[in-house]
Amino acid sequence: MKLPPGATGFGAYAHRSEDDLQALAAVCHHAARRTGGTVAELIPLGATPNFHTATITYPDDSIAVLRHGLLSWLALAKPTLPGQAPHDWLDRTDLAEAIGEVSDLRILTRAELSRPLTDADLADLGAAEIEQVAYWRPTTVGDVLFNLWD
């Protein structure tokens, strides 16, 4: 998966918006209603993490919906403790379909996010992003896209 400029959240691409958090909240409230869940928490991105998080809870489960801070991409993951990066990526067809009803955000699959990182994936990144990748040494595509690098 060739990553576009801005994938790390570093560099001169930044247009970070609180509107993105509000849009994520609206999308997740819709998806939660359609799938029998409740939006329990919204956490805005910051210097770290480079993504917004909405947590949808169900009677027997919780799912974190992550919205990349610069790209129109979402990921589904098991929730983590504050200060921990997501690693347990999920595929939830019902949730993805509900999100797709009200949004054109791309929902990345578990396979895409878990795939080992290659040099080809990084070919379009700028110097500042390559420097961050070299420093943090991510091993998967998901580690690059949804990170807590500072």
Rank of each mutant, 00 (worst) to 15 (best):
P79C: 08
Q132H: 11
M1V: 13
L145S: 03
P116N: 04
V39H: 15
G9N: 06
A64I: 05
M1T: 12
W136C: 06
P59A: 02
I107D: 02
L70S: 08
E101G: 03
F146L: 01
T109Y: 01
P79H: 03
D88M: 09
P86M: 03
A25G: 13
W149F: 03
A96S: 13
N50Q: 03
T139A: 13
P86V: 13
G100T: 09
A64D: 14
A111C: 08
A96T: 15
L95M: 04
T53M: 14
I99L: 13
A23Y: 14
Y58I: 11
H87Y: 00
T57P: 08
V65C: 06
Q22M: 14
G126P: 05
T140Y: 00
P82K: 01
P4H: 07
L21H: 00
T139M: 04
W73H: 11
A75D: 04
E112Y: 03
Y13R: 04
H52W: 13
D91N: 15
G9T: 03
G36H: 09
R16E: 05
F51E: 00
L24Y: 09
G9I: 00
T55I: 15
N147W: 02
V102K: 12
R106D: 00
A25N: 08
T8W: 00
F51S: 00
D121W: 02
A120W: 10
H87E: 09
A75H: 07
A31S: 13
A54V: 15
A128F: 09
D60W: 09
N147F: 03
T55Q: 08
L145N: 07
A111D: 15
I63Q: 12
E41M: 12
I130W: 11
Y58P: 05
D88V: 06
L113C: 02
H52P: 05
L45D: 07
Q84Y: 06
R33L: 15
L108P: 01
A111R: 12
A98N: 07
Y58N: 11
A134K: 12
A98I: 04
V65I: 10
V39N: 14
T48F: 14
A12E: 08
R34N: 12
E129V: 04
Q22L: 14
P79K: 01
A123M: 11
L3N: 03
L42R: 09
R137D: 03
P59E: 05
G100D: 11
G69F: 03
T80I: 02
K2E: 14
T55L: 10
E41Q: 13
A111Q: 12
G69T: 02
G126R: 08
D94V: 11
H29Y: 15
H68M: 08
I43K: 05
G83Y: 00
D150Q: 09
R92L: 12
R92A: 15
E129T: 00
V27L: 15
R115Q: 07
A98G: 06
Q22R: 09
G69Q: 01
K78T: 13
P138I: 01
H29V: 14
